[in-house]
Design a protein around this nucleic acid. Structure first.
Lengths: 214, 214
DNA sequence: CGATTAATGTACGAACTAGTACGTTCACGG
DNA sequence: CCGTGAACGTACTAGTTCGTACATTAATCG
């Protein structure tokens, strides 16, 4: 039994402990918000103790920043895999919008973290050296699609990639982020599976009709 | 000096004290969130004491619910004043979208309260007997515009008033609610006065092009 | 004008919460 | 196989925060 180094039976594992804390913290922060989250609660749901949170991360705020960094990095990684360059501009945009739609729906915790961070005026996000100013891969894709569409004389000229990204994001984010008050007031669940396809297609058409308007 | 009843020189004034607390609480909750808001802080900025918060509202949670009720009521009152029935369907919708756009921009605190309430899964909003299920006047207006537009053969049939309301809201809400992370990541301030008219017009065109698509 | 009640102010407590001092155990190199 | 430092656990503290007991003052009505 020389070196169990990278094996699973290790009892002390820096990486494992860190990852465990981070995963639990992500759920707690997304669930309760930054102020509402409890360090003791995170520790309790971890297989380790509160001492380790301070040992590895330094404090509640730094742990929260680490959670944000990991969440954004995961999103970027997933976006980098989207491949729409081979499609014609219209289909490419429809595809990209649908993928964003799916991605948001599959990651409600991320949306909640973004909402929470906005309530705090992005003061933690701005502190992160990793994230501040790190460009979004989706934006590059939109830029290239718009360029191709304009060259082909299909798309209007008075909108840039960020504008398009904003329309897509607002639609997808609103559907998840404001679901609860919307449901409470209008009685409609925007996440109802029966209406999913309607909304998914609607976003694509909304964009295309706007961009290709006479 | 018989009865100074409804005069301003009164020292003890139920209405005045209540309204004062509510106004200060609105700012504190919108600023810090429900969990982040401090009852002592609200009391300190009031012209009265913490004792009065408990005397008039009962507790932190009930005060927060009262804040929500007042904020929503103010919105409804303002929406009820919008008059677009005399315009043709296209102009009416453009007008309504622009007014919603303006209204959101003018009430950032309300947007923040809604975001905060959604983080809490609308658990407080649902508790309010006044608000739960109270319909939005804007929705009635949209319903009538769509009806007229369809009768005139202008608008598509596969969208209802709530869908349209959702597109308008998501655009206007996102611009304010997600301003900070958007700014931190993309470096663009969605509230920049120089881009205001662009966005305002964009929303109207987005809706019309979609609704009038061939 | 005296008494009753509504409205207000002060001081305090019990529970919670982020963070830490201090002690312990395990892995690994020599 | 032993010493050293990294990884981990326990118990505690200082400060905060919601809520309340108790005292007090102003309005109102008979």
């Amino acid at each position: 039994m020389a070196a169990p180094s990278s094996e699973a039976e290790r009892q002390r594992d820096k990486e494992r402990t860190r990852a465990d804390i981070l995963a639990v913290a992500t759920r707690e922060f997304a669930d309760k918000g930054y102020t509402g989250a409890r360090v003791d609660e995170i520790a309790a749901r971890t297989s380790t103790t509160k001492r380790m949170i301070y040992y590895y991360f330094g404090g509640k705020e730094q742990l929260y920043i680490a959670v944000l960094e990991q969440a954004y990095s995961a999103l970027r990684a997933s976006e980098q895999r989207l491949d729409v360059e081979h499609l014609d501009p219209e289909d490419a945009l429809r595809r990209l919008a649908a993928l964003t739609f799916d991605h948001h729906e599959a990651n409600p915790d991320f949306i909640r973290l973004v909402s929470i961070e906005n309530i705090h005026r992005a003061e933690h996000l701005s502190q992160s050296e990793i994230l501040a100013g790190l460009a979004d891969p989706a934006l590059g894709a939109i830029t290239r699609i718009l360029e191709r569409g304009r060259k082909a004389g299909l798309f209007r000229e008075d909108v840039d990639a960020l504008d398009v990204h904003m329309v897509i994001s607002s639609f997808c984010v609103f559907r998840l982020a404001n679901r609860h008050t919307f449901q409470a007031i209008f009685g409609r669940d925007m996440l109802d599976p029966g209406r999913r396809e309607h909304y998914r297609a609607m976003l694509g058409t909304l964009l295309i009709e706007y961009l290709t308007a006479r």
